[in-house]
Write a protein that binds this DNA or RNA. Structure first.
Length: 551
RNA sequence: GGGCCUGUAGCUCAGUCAGGUAGAGCGUCGGACUUUUAAUCCGAUGGUCGCGGGUUCGAACCCCGUCGGGCCCGCCA
């Protein structure tokens, strides 16, 4: 008998490390700190949001859910970094935005359809640049089952929430400088000061600090103007490396996932955790995650237009599949988002998982440890994929592939439901299924739908496919010309014509279908032909058979 | 220069934290369903765990080195 040194004899705890999903590992870490948690996420609304940003939010959401499942209180918050400045005139912006560079995203007008500043909405409704990009993202979040408490950063500055930290920083610029220089290994300019005042035009760039008398930071700007910035009234902002740890404090953040850029040694989390202590609070438990890139196109980037937006993704993919993508990948794993075949496989894997009974599987005592890990991981990933936290993910029992076929073959939804009914599906379409079909149709209509999945009826006979047919199979075509010509143009009628052609040619149905698939789809096999042909133009199909016979 | 992630079956990846007989899904191939919604079911196929050393009774896993891919250390959150 083999003994495994790693088997501990004590009773299995909820936190049996070897059997944990990544979200549970984080929950365990949080449990060591207490049972009240605020999980933070944060994004700068500088441009179009993309599914890369979804990972940030979903990672946080899943940690919060895991903490709640383990019996803790946990809330998800979303810091909207609208106090950050506009960095440059992005390609989607009009050149007039040049004047706003350095200005805070929450204090400048949103671009209109032509990329020009929309002053009307800005002046009348206060509709800002940040709002413009945030709004659709929030809608996508709602669909995907994430409703975080929003913490707009600019408003936090104006409300004086940064006052305490800003005072500590401005009172101790040398201590801050020491931390940043030592931990990040870079040298700060001599005139560096831990506060960025707004200049005479409202920009955070280009000011020189001339003096500090709490609560005022005195400055001169690039326009030759000078003035004072009150650090308690949001007349400026803390530099990012201080801004972040300051937010941890007054928002009482206990956990925050962030992209790998922040997580690098000497990066902003490293300096942040020391600065947090200086501010007087513990840094949150970190979790570094990898980026999501687009398959074959590299990293996602708003400015290059190389993105799939959350709303676009949701038109194609059911939200639970998007959640599953994140839940099923360890945060350290880079995700390649593939809107083609990868998506089909992902969705079908999801469907297969929903059909499994994990509890029963786990009862098998002969399972290897490895197997147990797999089951546990899959089970938790599936739970986290549910849009609503409490609900069990339900199986549609219709694979993505199958749905893709039906949606292509049947232009009318009713026919799809009828077909499902006939093949043992649900008597009435569930709302979930209707939703699936709607998204599937959008996907098929989009450029993202993989060619491999597309059903194409040949316009003319494919030479190569036809050459592979033997004489017997060719003979079928002769009879097919006749039987099909007389057939009633319905699925049943066409099926009957196939049979009749087979009988006339005295060959088995296998050869009939071989011949048909070669002719109609240039393939050896395929989806059931008759219903597809029934939806095609009769004249075109007969013409196709004719041409084939002539050549 | 410093650091992080990553390399396992044709593909996507588990497994590395706590060393104990290389795993899953997809794909491919074959069969069944007396023929079909790329379906389903069964079976088969498949890997010098990037490479080289070391530690060990035993290494995908730990240590050292090396090669390849991605990335960060410039307030770009």
């Amino acid at each position: 008998m083999t003994t495994f040194p790693f088997v501990v004899s004590s009773e299995p705890s909820l936190f049996e490390v070897s059997l944990m999903h990544w979200s549970d590992v984080m929950a365990k870490r949080l449990a060591e700190r207490g049972d009240q948690h605020i999980v933070a996420t944060g994004i700068t609304p500088s441009g179009e949001f993309h599914i890369g940003h979804l990972r940030e939010i979903l990672t946080g959401d899943m940690i919060a859910r895991a903490a709640r499942r383990a019996g803790m209180d946990a809330e998800l918050v979303f810091v909207v970094d609208n106090a950050d400045p506009l960095r440059k005139v992005y390609p989607f912006l009009d050149a007039s935005y040049e004047a706003f560079i350095g200005h805070q995203l929450g204090s400048i007008p949103a671009p209109d359809a032509e990329g020009k500043p929309d002053w009307d909405r800005f002046n009348n409704e206060g509709w800002s640049y940040g709002d413009h990009f945030l709004q659709p993202f929030l809608e996508a979040l709602r669909q995907i089952g994430v409703v975080p408490r929003l913490l707009p950063n600019l408003e936090a500055y104006r409300a004086g929430k940064f006052s305490k930290a800003a005072k500590v920083a401005c009172d101790n610029p040398h201590a801050i400088r020491e931390i940043i220089e030592r931990v990040s290994g870079r040298e700060l300019p001599d005139d560096w000061f831990p506060w960025q005042p707004l200049d005479s035009k409202g920009s955070l760039d280009g000011t020189v600090i001339t003096d500090y008398e709490y609560p005022l930071v005195h400055w001169t700007d690039s326009h030759g103007q000078s003035g004072s910035s009150d650090i308690e009234k949001g007349e400026g902002k803390l530099p990012w490396r201080l801004d972040w740890p300051a937010k941890w404090g007054f928002n009482q953040i206990t956990c925050e996932p962030f992209g790998k850029d922040h997580g690098a040694a000497g990066g902003s989390y490293d300096t942040g955790k020391e600065i947090a202590l200086l501010f007087g609070h513990e840094p949150p438990a970190p979790l570094t995650y990898e980026w999501i890139s687009l398959k074959g196109k590299g990293a996602m980037s708003s400015s290059s237009g190389n993105t799939v937006g959350p709303m676009e993704a949701l038109r194609l993919v059911p939200p639970e599949i998007l959640r599953f993508l994140v839940a099923n990948s360890k945060p350290s794993k880079a995700i390649e988002f593939d809107t083609g075949m990868g998506l089909v496989n992902l969705a079908d894997e999801y469907e297969r998982l929903t059909a499994r009974d994990f509890d029963t599987e786990m009862k098998d005592e002969n399972l290897s440890r490895r197997k147990q890990v797999q089951i546990e991981d899959a089970k938790v990933a599936l739970e986290l994929s549910a849009i609503h936290e409490q609900e069990k993910p339900s199986a549609t029992s219709i694979s993505f592939r199958h749905m893709a076929l039906l949606a292509q073959i049947k232009p009318n939804d009713e026919d799809v439901w009828a077909s499902l009914r006939d093949s043992g599906g649900p008597p009435e379409p569930t709302p979930q299924l209707e939703d699936r079909l709607k998204r599937m149709r959008a996907w098929i209509a989009s450029e993202h739908f993989p060619e491999d999945m597309r059903i194409n009826i040949c316009q003319s006979p494919d030479k190569e496919a036809m050459e592979h047919l033997n004489d017997l199979q060719r003979l079928v075509l002769v009879h097919l010309n006749e039987t099909l010509g007389e057939a009633i143009w319905t699925a049943d009628g066409i099926t009957a014509a196939f049979k009749a052609a087979g009988q006339a040619a005295e060959v088995g149905m296998k050869d009939v279908y071989r011949a048909c698939y070669a002719l109609f789809m240039a393939a050896e096999r395929g989806p059931r032909l008759a219903p597809i042909l029934a939806n095609c133009n009769r004249g075109d199909i007969l013409e196709l058979v004719n041409i084939a016979l002539e050549t």
